[in-house]
Design a protein around this nucleic acid. Sequence first.
DNA 1: GCCAACGTTGGC
DNA 2: GCCAACGTTGGC
Length: 165
Amino acid sequence: MRGRSRIQELPMSRANWLVKSEEEVYSIRHLERDGITSWEGVRNFEARNLMRDEMKVGDEVLFYHSNAKPAGVAGLARISREGYPDSFAFDAESPYFDPKSDPTQPRWFMVDLQFVEAFPEVVSLERIKSHPGLTGMVLLRRSRLSVQPVSEREFTIIRELGRGS
DNA sequence: GCCAACGTTGGC
DNA sequence: GCCAACGTTGGC
């Protein structure tokens, strides 16, 4: 090894994410009540890949209310368990049942989310659209992706807006 | 409730 | 492997 440097393991930097939920189905208040919840029912391959492969314990998550007035980021959560098979897909009684998924070869995955905080005021989609620092958000370009990456800068801006500072 | 956007399915 | 049809998401 003399004369060669080994590549060092860099400390893992924390990633940031955004997840969407219909407000009347499961809101930030539901998460506050539950403390931790499993994030089942995501049936999109790109979102599945993020949950299965990329989301790590401790990563911070913007909790977005869709079908809401106004739609927007309502609070913060944290990943408390990394990707594991979405067992709701195996349950014929579940609305999330998918006959193409089975326990030996699960098609869908979920993570667990832990409540962090509810913002005093929702950071509305309108406000996000009009903020110069947020124009690059995946949220604004991929309207139907319900689990998506957020940059550190975007995350910080929205957290500050949400906290009312 | 409408409808545009867009991911997925399935015929060829 | 293309692409039209279909179904769903999600803002308004």
